[in-house]
Computed example of a mutant assay.
Amino acid sequence: MEYLPLVFLSGADELPLPEPEALGAVEGRSAIVYGPEEDDDGLLCHAQGWDMGDLVLEPTTPANGEIPSYNKALIFLFAKPNLLGFFADWKSFQKGAHHFRRPNLVLTRRARQKQRLRLDGDIIVRRRNGSTLLSKLYDFGPSGASFYTDAADFRSGEMLLAEFEISGCGSCETTATIVRVETLSHSHYGYLVGIYFHLTKAQLQKAEQLYLCKKAEAIRQLSAPERHRWAPPETV
């Protein structure tokens, strides 16, 4: 269980032996399931609620061929306004959905506590297939970011390594999971990819520093006298 706080988020609250109704895993909530294999990019699912104490997760794409048996899976569940992380024992696959036993311990924290900032910056994305991509950031916050790309093979649930640089503030590197891919119709780029960071305590502090640095810069720009028609003249 020591692994979970590292890949989850620092500052999370612990829920030992939680009751199902306390987790907010209602029908339609999104979840990502990871198996024990190192090359597992994660399986995006929708929660179907609880069945006799078992958490039911239905894959967003129908299974082709052999149905995976997860044994013990790492699951991230987006139960707004909270993000949950826990290990759960796989029980069975029935009627197109995976059934997991109720977890013994759940880590939870509120998702996206700070609004993201629009900014110009670069992000280097390293994928598990060995490819590296340089892209432009669209927005950034302490818990995640989004970037432009023309690559058409990004998928929700994919885990990657992201290194981003915020001009005038610094840089940070962290693992991240893709949580959405949007097709753009009126843009120079084909897609907008949203990612959620998996931060250690030190990485979280760095990300928050970058956010506050850029936030302060934005505030300074908004408060600059030349932006306001009725601003008093500067004194020498």
Rank of each mutant, 00 (worst) to 15 (best):
P81C: 01
G121K: 05
F76Q: 05
R128M: 15
F164R: 10
F140T: 06
P62N: 04
H98F: 12
A88F: 00
R112D: 10
D89R: 10
S156A: 15
F100H: 05
T61A: 15
E58K: 06
G144R: 06
V56C: 02
K91A: 10
R118K: 14
F86S: 12
R118N: 13
D139M: 08
R127I: 13
R126G: 11
C45A: 02
G42V: 08
N71G: 11
N71R: 15
S146Q: 08
F78Y: 12
L107Y: 13
C169E: 04
F100D: 06
K80H: 13
D153Y: 00
R128S: 10
R101M: 13
L133V: 15
R155T: 13
H99T: 02
S146P: 07
L74W: 08
F86T: 11
R126Y: 04
L84H: 13
G168H: 06
S92G: 03
W50Q: 06
N71F: 12
D39E: 12
G168L: 07
Q115C: 05
S69W: 14
A111K: 14
V106Q: 01
S143G: 15
L55S: 09
A162W: 03
C169K: 05
R110Y: 01
A97Y: 04
L74E: 05
H98S: 06
T149P: 07
L107G: 08
A145H: 01
L43A: 04
T60H: 00
M159R: 13
S131G: 02
I123Y: 04
E58F: 00
G49D: 04
H46Q: 12
E165A: 10
L55K: 03
G141R: 03
L84W: 08
R110W: 00
E37C: 02
D139F: 11
P81S: 00
R102D: 02
L133Y: 12
I67G: 08
T149A: 08
S146I: 01
R127N: 03
E66L: 09
W50A: 03
N64W: 07
S171K: 15
E165W: 04
N64A: 14
A162S: 14
Q48W: 03
R126C: 13
H99K: 02
G42P: 12
I75N: 00
F154Q: 00
